[in-house]
């Protein structure tokens, strides 16, 4: 219950942040990615602001032995730069450049009442499940 209330609050702040910063407007994101056009620096400020907070705050948080309401920190364990990381990130980038949405803004943009974020999120789930089944078959 406590865990869910923090998840709700954190989700709310996340969605609010993506709205306030206008990352739910894909033209702003594409305006940032289109470096040879009329460049829009918005995304740089959003990512900079967010990472500015996490770089400082995470240092203090991760100094604790465990989180305030949980037994342990659930952190990624992989450390090596492998093929999956490089190729996966590149495929993600191509999709991002085509649609102008990444997962967070796409989900938040569902409230705008237009179809493309809905199609995007459904296709995102399909793509994710496709990779999952391919990687399970190969292992």
């Amino acid at each position: 219950m406590k865990e869910n209330s923090i998840a709700l609050l954190a989700g709310l702040l996340f969605g609010l942040g993506l709205g306030v910063s206008q990352m739910i407007d894909r033209d702003r994101v594409l305006g940032f990615l289109d470096v040879t056009g009329v460049w829009d620096p918005t995304l740089l400020f959003v990512l900079g602001g967010a990472v500015g907070v996490t770089v400082i705050a995470f240092r203090f948080v991760l100094r604790r032995r465990h989180p305030i309401w949980a037994d342990k920190f659930y952190l990624p364990t992989k450390k090596d730069i492998d093929r999956a990381l490089v190729i996966g990130a590149a495929i993600f980038g191509v999709g991002w450049g085509i649609a102008g949405y990444c997962p967070g803004p796409a989900i938040t943009a569902l409230v705008l009442g237009i179809w493309n974020p809905v199609l995007f999120v459904l296709a995102l789930i399909a793509g994710s499940l496709t990779y999952k089944s391919l990687s399970q078959r190969n292992s």
Binding site: L13, G17, L43, G49
Partner: peptide, 24 residues
């Protein structure tokens, strides 16, 4: 608004990690 929105996202990620130990 760009920086303010970014700060909210950073705060969100910090809360989730500090209380639940989860990555946003």
């Amino acid at each position: 608004t760009a920086l303010g929105g970014g700060l909210l996202i950073g705060l969100s990620a910090t809360l989730l990690l500090a209380f639940n130990g989860r990555i946003a």
